[in-house]
């Protein structure tokens, strides 16, 4: 689950100027922040010829996009390029279905805390494959500490707040407090070895291999 922002105009306009466009607009994963109105305004302001405009939700679903590509085949054929307003996944799906067509995206994509699950939440998980939560009273130091420190806080904490974002609580202060409550401060004395990044790459590549 991802959300998007409109790319700066100066990045998009030179790519599409003078071209005939077909437009795909994703309504996003519904009920998520998605710049629907901004996209609408931007598209309306374009001087380029627009051969067709498909507005749908869940543009990442190949079956749905296929149906739209079929329905709008003439309009797509008549366009010099297909401009997609969606997250990176949606753009890649459209692009993979229209391989010989120029497909551009008008959006930058970002993810929000909690999206690994179902929806925006205050919790986040970096899927590091080696859960440290048992050492940290269930507060994740990988996602809550910008440095992902495993062995206690850096010296940058000020009044319990993070040096990177003074509005955010220092994860390690929170961990300390919760462990104290649990009477398990001794957990902190264990020296955790650095994160094993090979877990990521092995898993990632084998999954990719499975798809090909």
């Amino acid at each position: 689950m991802l959300v998007t922002q409109l790319k700066p105009e100066e990045e998009v306009l030179p790519k599409i100027s003078g071209k005939r466009l077909f437009i795909f607009e994703c309504l996003g994963c519904k009920e998520l922040y998605f710049p629907k109105e901004e996209v609408g305004k931007f598209v309306d302001s374009l001087k380029e010829e627009i051969t067709g405009r498909a507005i749908l939700d869940y543009l990442c679903n190949r079956e749905f996009v296929k149906a739209y590509v079929g329905e709008y085949s003439k309009e797509i054929e008549g366009a010099d390029l297909v401009l997609v307003f969606s997250c990176g996944v949606g753009t890649q799906v459209v692009s993979s279905l229209l391989e010989s067509k120029l497909v551009y995206t008008g959006c930058d994509t970002l993810y929000l805390n909690g999206f690994q699950g179902l929806s925006a939440r205050n919790f986040n998980c970096n899927q590091c494959g080696q859960c440290y939560l048992n050492y940290t009273a269930g507060i994740c130091p990988i996602t809550n500490c910008p440095k992902g420190l495993l062995n206690g806080p850096c010296g940058g904490t000020k009044d319990g707040k993070c040096e990177v974002d003074p509005e955010a609580d220092c994860a390690w202060v929170l961990i300390y407090k919760r462990l104290e409550k649990l009477g398990k401060l001794d957990t902190l004395t264990e020296i955790l070895s650095p994160r094993d990044y090979s877990k990521n790459i092995t898993e990632y590549l084998s999954q990719k291999e499975g798809v090909k």
């Binding site: 206690g152 806080p153 010296g155 004395t189």
Partner: peptide
């Protein structure tokens, strides 16, 4: 390094020992 003015200082001491 260690930061004696850190709050809670116990957390610095734990890390110092580490």
């Amino acid at each position: 390094v260690v930061n004696p003015g850190y709050d809670p200082v116990e957390l610095q001491l734990i890390k110092m020992e580490k």
